[in-house]
């Protein structure tokens, strides 16, 4: 026989409980409660806390402290500068113009700027700057090699292949083997000058130098005041013709002042004043003997 128990009670929700449940089931309201309210709370709290200037300063200071402590770790410190591929005086100059007091953090070094500074030196054609492990700031430079001397009104300059003035020369004798050139605008045609010097190798014992005339053509200056006037174009060929003449007919050993090759189809020779008069004298004598 089964016992009969009273039915379970089923209380009705109050009006407000019912409304609250419906509100909580509204999708938009739930979204607002889940996302918008926490966002607004967090944002508002952070804003309120940061509205004090002292707190902001402290935060900035703390961040800066951490930053400094990381940057000044020994792993990041640079202790010395190593310069590669430069002569002692050029490396001294580099050390002068890049004044870094070591040790220094590698975060503070602006390698690009250091490179710019080094590249600004006239004696240097290429440079690369990097920090090697072990705290070494390595500067690899390629120096400009002076190939020719250039005499100007101001003095004697060393010029490299590209026509850049590398340095002031101490004197003619200090750079014995280097050829010499003169004249305005000569530096822009160093390669042509070098070609002329190599072509004039047979004349090297007499060759004094080259002179740029009117910024357009070259003169070869020999000793005893002789000059070879070369044309604007084909200067090397003209010089080679003169050398052939000189070897074959000893032309330059004679009493010439100027060999004018400016017009290739009409080479001209100017004889010295005294030789002309001698020649005239000889012609008179020979005429007289013929008369006789």
């Amino acid at each position: 026989m089964q016992q009969v128990s009273p039915p379970r009670s089923d209380p009705a929700p109050s009006r407000w409980a019912y409304r609250f449940q419906r509100l909580m089931l509204t999708p938009l309201f739930r979204f607002a409660l889940r996302v918008a309210v926490p966002f607004a709370l967090a944002f508002g709290a952070a804003g309120l806390w940061l509205s004090d200037a002292d707190r902001r300063d402290r935060i900035v200071l703390a961040i800066a402290d951490i930053r400094t402590s990381i940057q000044s770790r020994p792993e990041f410190m640079v202790d010395l500068m190593e310069i590669n591929g430069a002569s002692p005086d050029v490396s001294g100059t580099i050390r002068e113009i890049v004044p870094i007091d070591f040790p220094r953090s590698s975060f503070d070094l602006d390698l690009a700027q250091i490179r710019e500074q080094v590249m600004a030196l006239p004696a240097i054609s290429a440079a690369s700057v990097r920090i090697r492990p072990g705290g070494v700031l390595r500067v690899d430079v390629t120096e400009r090699v002076p190939v020719i001397l250039w005499r100007t009104a101001a003095g004697l300059d060393l010029v490299d292949v590209d026509g850049v003035v590398v340095a002031r020369a101490a004197g003619r004798s200090a750079h014995g083997p280097l050829p010499i050139m003169a004249g305005k605008g000569a530096a822009a045609h160093v390669d042509e000058a070098l070609a002329l010097f190599s072509a004039g190798e047979p004349l090297s014992d007499r060759l004094r130098g080259l002179e740029r005339i009117g910024e357009r053509r070259w003169d070869v200056v020999l000793d005893r005041g002789q000059r070879i006037l070369l044309p604007e174009r084909g200067a090397v060929q003209a010089l080679e013709r003169v050398i052939v003449l000189a070897e074959g007919q000893d032309m330059l050993d004679r009493d010439l002042v100027i060999v004018d090759m400016r017009l290739p189809e009409r080479p001209t020779v100017r004889i010295a004043e005294r030789a002309v008069q001698d020649w005239w004298k000889l012609r008179k004598l020979s005429a007289r003997s013929n008369d006789l």
Partner: peptide, 18 residues
């Protein structure tokens, strides 16, 4: 009204939708 409220609330709760 109370009885309707009870039934609707329970059904909404089960459906999880308003």
């Amino acid at each position: 009204e109370r009885a309707i409220r009870t039934a609707v609330q329970a059904a909404q709760k089960m459906a999880q939708i308003r």
